[in-house]
Simulated assay, not measured.
Amino acid sequence: MNNPYIIDGHCDSLIHFVDGERTLQDPSEGGQWDTRRALRAGVSLQFLAAFIETEYKPARSTSRGLQLIEGAQRFIADYSDQVFLVLGKSDLTRIPDRERIGILLSVEGGEILGQNLFMLDKIYQLGVRALGLTWNQRNALADGVGVPQSQNRLTRLGQEVVLRMNELGMLIDVSHLNEAGFWHVLELSKSPIAASHSCAKSLCNHPRNLTDQQLRALAKHKGVVGVNFYPRFLKETGPVTREDVIRHICHIAEVAGVEAVGLGSDFDGISEVPIGLEHVGDYPYLIEDLIKAGFSAKEVEQIVGRNFMRLLTDVLK
């Protein structure tokens, strides 16, 4: 089969660029994601997350978030020969571009909004097209999975954010959101949603993973789950390899349909990686494994890119 284009629903490399640790250009700088290896591997669209670290919360969440967005803008401007910003449907028509990677800017954590709905419009104007409503903690929108035994649904502000995101054409990301919030989002959202970097709970009982019921509901809503490469989300004990990523992909495809599964590496946001899938340059090996697992060429194309493309086409304006 021809090499399919790849869309990765989540990486945290932006922090390294903003903090001056790496240019994100050269593998010799270290890290798990850079443009050189990504281009060689066939990555055509990368969700680039502005992750607001815990030490900035709550007082400095907005300023840190805006600093990260400014850094993303600078990264895209400085390396316009290698990357371009995806803002809407018209930009999706440029994918795949074998010489440049599309960048979809996301924010991981509704803390950037503070308690102000108008901030959603502001970050949209700055180029943000996806928002994870929470990280693991509670914020003004909802509770994350790290809030013990939380049964809270979205706050009033959280509900307003979901509806406004639908109006703007922003992708709602429920990775890190508690289960009650997940179900509330599905009740409210008129557009399909994503769990950009999550795995299957029935295979690994971790709070960050989704139950089979959640997976089916997400699929019914025409959403996509980007399978996360973090070993602790893939397997509870023992060494973790690329085969464990395939195992989660197969399970989600079986439970929710192949149309519901994608890739969400979490590269540069994870301290451990599966053996054989240690950086973005290893994607071709994952594609080979999908073929060996029995997926057809069409199904492989859906999993590694076309499912996220269909989702973005449905959501973006």
Score class of each variant (00 low, 15 high):
residue 45 L to C: 09
residue 169 G to E: 02
residue 83 V to P: 02
residue 9 G to K: 06
residue 179 E to R: 15
residue 176 H to P: 05
residue 197 H to K: 00
residue 117 L to P: 04
residue 50 A to D: 10
residue 67 Q to R: 06
residue 68 L to H: 07
residue 70 E to A: 15
residue 212 D to R: 05
residue 69 I to R: 00
residue 135 W to A: 00
residue 214 Q to Y: 10
residue 286 L to C: 04
residue 156 R to Q: 15
residue 32 Q to I: 08
residue 102 G to K: 11
residue 162 V to S: 02
residue 189 S to C: 13
residue 191 S to E: 05
residue 79 Y to N: 13
residue 271 S to T: 13
residue 75 F to P: 01
residue 141 L to H: 00
residue 313 T to D: 07
residue 119 M to E: 08
residue 140 A to T: 13
residue 304 V to R: 02
residue 68 L to D: 08
residue 145 V to G: 00
residue 288 E to G: 13
residue 289 D to H: 02
residue 73 Q to P: 04
residue 104 L to C: 05
residue 100 R to H: 03
residue 253 A to I: 12
residue 155 T to C: 06
residue 29 E to P: 12
residue 314 D to L: 09
residue 139 N to V: 09
residue 308 F to N: 03
residue 303 I to C: 01
residue 178 N to G: 11
residue 222 K to G: 05
residue 83 V to T: 09
residue 8 D to M: 14
residue 80 S to Q: 06
residue 101 I to C: 00
residue 12 D to S: 15
residue 234 L to C: 10
residue 227 V to M: 13
residue 288 E to N: 14
residue 36 R to Q: 15
residue 51 F to G: 00
residue 174 V to A: 09
residue 286 L to K: 08
residue 27 P to E: 08
residue 9 G to T: 10
residue 180 A to W: 06
residue 192 P to A: 01
residue 136 N to D: 02
residue 95 I to S: 09
residue 181 G to M: 00
residue 274 P to F: 08
